[in-house]
Design a protein around this nucleic acid. Structure first.
Lengths: 250, 250
DNA sequence: CGCAGGATTGATATCAATCAATAACGGTGG
DNA sequence: CCACCGTTATTGATTGATATCAATCCTGCG
């Protein structure tokens, strides 16, 4: 269950600690002011909570401030496909805001802190601040790019390559937003999550991860995965890594 | 080879015949004027031409006026994954315009007519016409939604379900933009294209399509596929179909 | 201690890839 | 008009990858 702590502005956008990370593009003071105005609150969700449900029509848009989550879709009989993972700086709920209905669900993997916006204000954002509108489009294009790569992975990579791609991908993303600190292992997810991402069965996923472990590229402990050799994983996957360009952060 | 016939404005946007289709949202006169201004020409490409190449940095954005195409990515050793198909009304090259580098290639399946825009004018569009900026974002979100469904398909559907999904998906899309007329069968593509979309081998794709044919749901003739029973295909795939909402058209 | 959820493992069953031909078709040059 | 050719579609046989089934083993937790 997601626990609604307080829907008020707990941090002013200007002081948002994330804003200082290298991976994010700097915002002008005007833009920061606008975002502070646009922000309608913060939302704290517990690990395992469902944030948005396929078919629903949420009145909110969120920017992730902290924590891990994932987007997924299901078939009528329950088979599930994880579409992408969600990390700090990601904008979520855009599809729902624009197309009027979520076609996927979102769940948290860890406790999460989200910045809340009213979807009704979205059009006004485009009107008042073209640069922020542009940024949102930028983020949408970036999500599309990640999905393209995932699709290539699930469609054409072998099981081992897929696993290697997934883990190096998440490792890079997490590192950039400071979510791979010394104390934190890596990803707070189970092998079931991995299998639903890779489009493989749980058993086969386990055997595949084991191979990566034998080669000392990763280490699985408890409910998370340590990345020991990102480079080698990328090599196995035939993946070039994420672009270095700083991205917008709302 | 793509043949550049003439890069001038051959049709004013206001008279664009596509604009009258039900599937597209109507544009205000101001918006139409803006687009006419933004439009820098038309481009005619022949079937089989490569429009954009992974890694390149095209100065253009396009809206499709006519014809079929597809986006794809490849692995270093040549394995190819088709990401999505391109039909009239689609905006292409947005990733390249925003993120500065194409991460996928685009090829035509039939002769194609494209409306050309300068990517440098994109930011100005957001500034001058927030509603058009919003529309572009809308289109990006729609593309994302299609990719989500493809990913679910490739990751979790069986071969038969995937094929059924793909064909009903294309059938719906084509019908809406009037590309399934009496005289035209359906899609001008080969089974190799199908296999690269579904993430299956060519042989297995052939056997799978054959099953759909035996059940009288499709008919393969020459280099194209007739859809005989879209409803049944959707049922097999467990797919609900595209949303009915009219979409923006630039 | 006893559970429950997650990770592992070995055996077996399927699905899909690969290999190897052959057939069908459209286009070309003679 | 016909022989020739390249591309695409089709098929059967075989191999290989992945799914499924069925246990067992952990580990954190009440």
């Amino acid at each position: 269950m997601a626990s609604r702590t307080a829907l008020k502005k707990q941090i002013s956008c200007g002081k948002c600690p994330l804003r200082d990370l290298d991976c994010f593009r700097k915002m002008s003071p005007t833009e920061v002011d606008f975002m502070s105005e646009f922000k309608s609150g913060e939302f704290n969700a517990q690990a395992g909570a469902t944030l948005l449900v396929e078919g629903s029509n949420s009145p909110h848009l969120y920017t992730v401030l902290e924590g891990w989550g994932f987007r997924y879709k299901s078939l009528p009989d329950g088979r599930r496909q994880i579409l992408n993972f969600i990390l700090p700086g990601d904008l979520i709920g855009l599809q729902g805001s624009l197309l009027n209905e979520m076609a996927h669900s979102i769940e948290t993997l860890s406790d999460m802190v989200l910045c809340v916006f009213e979807r009704d204000g979205l059009y006004n954002l485009f009107k008042s601040s073209p640069s922020l509108g542009y940024d949102i489009t930028w983020l949408a294009a970036r999500e599309e790019q990640m999905l393209d790569e995932h699709l290539l992975s699930v469609g054409r990579r072998t099981a081992l390559e897929r696993a290697a791609y997934l883990i190096s991908f998440l490792s890079q993303r997490a590192r950039r937003v400071g979510h791979l600190s010394e104390d934190q292992p890596l990803i707070p997810f189970t092998q079931t999550h991995v299998s639903d991402t890779l489009g493989l069965s749980l058993v086969h996923t386990n055997k595949t991860l084991k191979k990566l472990q034998e080669r000392k590229l990763i280490r699985w402990s408890g409910k998370s995965c340590h990345v020991l050799d990102e480079k080698k994983l990328m090599e196995i996957a035939g993946w070039d890594g994420l672009p270095e360009t700083p991205r917008p952060f709302l």
